[in-house]
Amino acid sequence: MIYKIRVILDTKKDVIRTLLVDSSSTLEDLHKLIAKVFGFNGQEMASFYRSDDEWNQGEEIPLFSMDDDPNALSMSTTTIEQNIEDPEEKLIYVYDYLNMWTFYCELIEVTKTTTSELPKLILTIGEVPDEAPEKEFKADKPKKDEFDLDDDDFDTHFDEFDSLDDIDFDNY
């Protein structure tokens, strides 16, 4: 099967590449292709993440597995079609953990016809910026429980003693 995959760089300006790939290619092959078409050397660490329709990051598929399990996922041991097989299925791709270049990969078409020259870049939109855009990581604020005390609460709960000198240790 031939997959048409749209790869969008997470930047303010549109930077898009559309690729034709053989569905039986590994994710490592796709990693090398994405790095090449976006102008990277492909030598940095990277990971794919399975994603849902809302682009929520799911299970990681790293370039190299650091797990002792011989069946652990890695890009070289899993194919593209094992991770996406129907149009509109998605993967998130992160390249170069120091700069966090983030890409959104979506399967947009599946065809049975064969093309002799695969993989193939079929559409280029926009220029890759010189530096990766800054990422803003936001976490949900945890719910406050009775043991989460800010400075004012701390003073209220523990104002019985001004110092250790006020404690009569003979009673203990």
Rank of each mutant, 00 (worst) to 15 (best):
N41E: 13
S65Q: 00
A132K: 10
E54G: 09
K90F: 06
A35I: 04
F40P: 04
Y95D: 00
S23P: 12
Y49A: 04
E134G: 08
D165W: 08
D86L: 14
L149K: 12
D68S: 13
V110Y: 13
T79A: 02
K32G: 03
E134P: 05
I167L: 10
N56I: 09
T115G: 04
T156W: 09
N41M: 07
M45W: 07
Y3V: 06
E131K: 15
E131N: 15
P129I: 06
L149F: 12
D155M: 14
F40N: 06
F169H: 13
L19W: 09
T77E: 01
Y97I: 09
K13R: 14
D159P: 05
N71V: 03
D151C: 04
F48E: 01
S74I: 01
V15Y: 08
L91S: 07
G39S: 10
F169Q: 10
T156Q: 15
N56P: 03
L63Y: 00
S25R: 02
W101Y: 08
T124W: 03
K12L: 09
K112G: 11
L107D: 03
N71S: 07
E89V: 06
Y93G: 01
M75H: 00
L73P: 02
T102S: 15
D151P: 12
L121H: 11
S51K: 11
V21T: 06
T79R: 01
I16Y: 13
I2Q: 09
D150V: 06
L91E: 06
K36G: 03
T111H: 07
D150C: 09
S163C: 13
C105K: 01
D162P: 07
T102F: 02
M100I: 04
V37T: 08
H31Q: 06
L63M: 10
P70A: 14
G58C: 11
I5W: 00
T113V: 06
E106L: 03
Y93Q: 07
E59V: 15
D155G: 06
V94E: 08
P133D: 01
D10V: 01
E134H: 13
L149G: 13
Y172P: 05
S76H: 00
K144L: 07
W55Y: 10
N171T: 07
E146M: 07
K143A: 05
L20I: 04
K12W: 03
F154P: 08
F38M: 06
T11H: 13
E134F: 12
D165P: 04
D168Q: 02
F38S: 09
F161R: 10
K135P: 02
E127V: 12
A132G: 05
D152P: 11
S24K: 15
N41K: 09
T79S: 05
K138H: 09
L91F: 12
T77K: 01
P119V: 02
I16G: 08
E146D: 12
E146I: 14
D69N: 15
D67T: 14
D140A: 12
D150L: 10
S65A: 02
T114A: 12
M75N: 01
L91V: 11
I122P: 03
L121G: 07
Q82T: 09
F38Q: 04
F154C: 06
D152K: 15
L107N: 04
D69G: 05
T114Q: 11
D140W: 15
G58N: 14
E136P: 05
E160C: 03
A132T: 10
T124H: 15
M75K: 00
F161L: 10
A46S: 14
A132E: 04
